[in-house]
Simulated assay, not measured.
Amino acid sequence: MKIAVIGGTGLIGSQVVKKLDAAGHEAVPHAPSTGVDVITGEGLAEALAGADVVVNLTNSPTFDDASQAFFRTSMDNILAASRDAGVGHAVILSIVGVDLVPDLGYYRAKALQEEILRAGPVPYSVVRATQFMEFVQPTLGMTTEGDTVRLPATPVQPIAAQDVSDAVAGVAAGAPLNGTLNIAGPDVFPLDELGRITLDARPDGRAVVTDETAGMFALAPGDALLAPADARIAPTRYRDWLA
């Protein structure tokens, strides 16, 4: 199959392209650097010409309320170009619990992206992943003040980007789900404990203080960010990934 991977040069996209190519498919990465602009629509018709599947791994440049405009415009453009090109399967990567955290503007935007896909003209699949292990360090940075990292005890279930790319590539190579696949890592941690584990393994002079009001994940209620019962559990454990 010919598979167009929009956002195919990023953390997940580049791995998805490699995995699909290794499986015998023709995976073509597309990004602004290859002349594709999902906001203006420039290059989309050419990128999707002859494609059987489109995988949309683009992301908003901001994580605030402005992200809604990005996902609305980009999805409208990608789906219209997919329809015109006769693409038979559209795949997006979303977030576990995205519809359970209404106080986060970025989560509302990703939920909107899912809604547009479901209502669109192309058979679809949604892959929802928990928080990436690769994003733990940036998360610590967002709430660092001097030598102190403030984190809530929000339960999280981190997953390795490699495992996410495995799932996305597998879904892209299969029949449309016309539904959602949830994927998650095998271990659940309170976010503050995860921060301490990370800094114990890679000490840099900072220490974690529990603060239930700190950072964006303080807005996630209860177990909203944890895998639902039907989730596929990936093999990579966080401590092994750190090592």
Rank of each mutant, 00 (worst) to 15 (best):
V188M: 05
I183C: 12
L226K: 03
I183S: 10
D200Y: 02
F217I: 05
T180R: 02
N182G: 07
E193S: 00
A224V: 10
I183G: 12
M216K: 07
L226Y: 03
G185P: 13
A218R: 04
L181S: 05
R196D: 01
L219E: 09
T213S: 12
A214P: 01
A220L: 06
L226I: 04
V188W: 05
V209D: 03
I233H: 05
L181K: 07
L194M: 06
A224R: 08
A231Y: 13
V208C: 03
L191C: 07
D204Y: 03
P186T: 15
P203G: 09
F189V: 02
G222S: 15
N182Q: 11
L181M: 10
L219N: 11
P186C: 14
P186Q: 14
A229W: 09
L225S: 06
G205I: 09
A214L: 01
I197V: 15
A220P: 06
A207R: 15
A229H: 10
P221Q: 12
F217Q: 09
N182T: 09
A220H: 08
L226S: 02
D211R: 01
L181V: 08
D187E: 15
P190T: 11
D230E: 15
T210G: 01
A220F: 09
T213I: 00
E212D: 12
I197A: 01
V188R: 14
G195V: 03
I233F: 07
A207D: 10
L219D: 06
T180W: 04
A227S: 12
A227W: 13
L225R: 09
L199E: 01
I233M: 08
A214M: 01
A201K: 15
A231F: 14
A207L: 09
L194T: 04
R206V: 05
G185I: 13
M216R: 10
A207G: 09
I197H: 00
E212T: 10
L191E: 07
A207P: 00
A218M: 04
G222I: 06
P186Y: 15
N182M: 07
D192N: 13
D223V: 02
A224W: 07
G222E: 15
E193I: 01
A207F: 08
V209L: 08
G205Y: 08
